[in-house]
Design a protein around this nucleic acid. Structure first.
Lengths: 264, 264
DNA sequence: TTCAAAACAATCAAATTCAATCATTTATTT
DNA sequence: AAATAAATGATTGAATTTGATTGTTTTGAA
């Protein structure tokens, strides 16, 4: 991985969470801890992050600017940068599972955001808490869009409500598409505490759950468990997936759809 | 492969992914690394890419955001040009009634949309069923935005819910700003059947109702009555207002704010 | 306080990337 | 076709980056 690319990714990660461990970065970016430390040193000298013992901390000296930038789709770009082709193919396959006229739920997040590209020419009923996705599809497609009520979180580009009962409880949808930072025997995980509630609420309104997770997400575990594997109906991943992981899903009767990874 | 062709392909690739290795380009384009380096040098001299150690970085990686930004702030500019100056002054006065930190409701519609221009530098809690206003202010301001749940109606640019109980019932706001096609002794009127329900629901959550209506709207009556005059606390209109109409509002103890009409 | 584990900066050797150079191939002009 | 110009690919040594190793510092538990 390129030096600049690595550093950009560190910034992107810190855009989404307040703190990261050196170790975690080293694993995620597939570089030695020494290299990560050097990156952190450089970035902190540029005042782009704050270097603290154990890792790095986000420096929100210009919170508004950062928020605006992330909303505009940096999350989308990070996703693209990390796994450009694979994620796109997975998103494409996900959209192919829908027929026009169907009602689907799409949760906020970079993986599912990529579905947008393939939804442009479709006509579905789409319930989503992703404000950015709704924006794109409202402007550029004929899909019918439904939003949950709540506050707009610029950084994540999503709408969240603190209240139990909101508009979405009245909607019954066919499928829910969900991206995740990690899925394994323990279930589907999520890193953001804000997101997890909202996603659980959305999940209740869907008949089927379809998880989008490229091979790097399999067996990974993020901070919080969103739902057990039993809830998952279909998993879409790529051909780099480890047999060991796939077996777990198979044992739970999850239908696994595998798309060809370009560089496998 | 021709030189120009190769360089265009490099640009295409960087249009998609922000970073590439020299090695990867060399393989993809079937040229030596030396040639690729020369291409990168030329392209970077033209400022079309950024040359970094190990490869190249897209310079316009935030292009979509930039486009959207200029386009979106121009949404206010367009409104500014199309609407008469009076409406703008009324909108400005309306925003001046708010102090930072306050919670306000703004209904969808062209008059109230113009408030957006003056809200850019403010920090308020804004509950609005105007999807377009929310969009603009999310991208270009630091206001906290709250949306009701429901379906997006493209034509009107608003969010509507068919259900009685939605998220907004939990919000208690200081002021509601409402534009209207007609206001008179019979009350505040509205022409759009879709809008009227939604606005009545919003109204319930506000302590004070402030109506924006230039002088041409006074004494006018549109198809439906949204609420009686008793509910109105403040009316903002312009200096062309007829005394006869103003007396009606005065009798109902409505505070009337009059802005100077430029061509009066 | 003591101790062990973790995180750290400094250092070094290996690997990678680079610009410069030159011979060869390809394109253009005469 | 010959001469000239331009582009390409290979080679080189220098510069930079990287991961591993070292010993030191910090941390939290005993």
């Amino acid at each position: 991985m390129l030096e600049k690319q690595r550093q950009q990714l560190i910034l992107d990660i810190l855009d989404e969470q307040q703190f990261v461990h050196v170790k975690s970065l080293s694993e995620q970016l597939d570089s030695s801890e020494a290299t990560i430390r050097r990156d952190l040193l450089k970035l902190s000298q540029q005042n782009k992050i704050k270097k603290i013992r154990g890792g790095a901390q986000a420096v929100n000296f210009d919170r508004s600017a950062l928020q605006r930038r992330s909303l505009s789709s940096s999350a989308f770009l990070v996703a693209k940068q990390q796994q450009p082709e694979v994620k796109r193919l997975i998103a494409k396959k996900a959209v192919e599972l829908c027929s026009d006229g169907e009602s689907i739920i799409i949760n906020g997040g970079s993986s599912t955001f990529m579905m947008g590209e393939f939804l442009l020419e479709r006509e579905l009923n789409i319930l989503t808490n992703s404000f950015v996705l709704a924006q794109e599809l409202t402007e550029n497609s004929d899909n019918n869009l439904i939003l949950p009520g709540g506050e707009i979180y610029r950084k994540q580009g999503i709408i969240l409500s603190a209240f139990e009962n909101d508009t979405i409880q009245y909607y019954s949808m066919d499928k829910m598409f969900m991206g995740t930072p990690g899925i394994g025997e323990y279930g589907v995980t999520e890193s953001d505490t804000l997101l997890i509630r909202s996603e659980q609420k959305l999940l209740k309104q869907a008949d089927k759950l379809i998880v989008l997770a490229d091979s790097s997400k399999l067996g990974r575990k993020s901070n919080f468990i969103l739902c057990p594997l039993e809830e998952v109906d279909i998993l879409i991943t790529d051909s780099n997936a480890d047999e060991k992981h796939l077996k777990v899903f198979h044992d739970k009767n999850i239908e696994v759809i595998i798309v060809d990874a370009p560089d496998s």
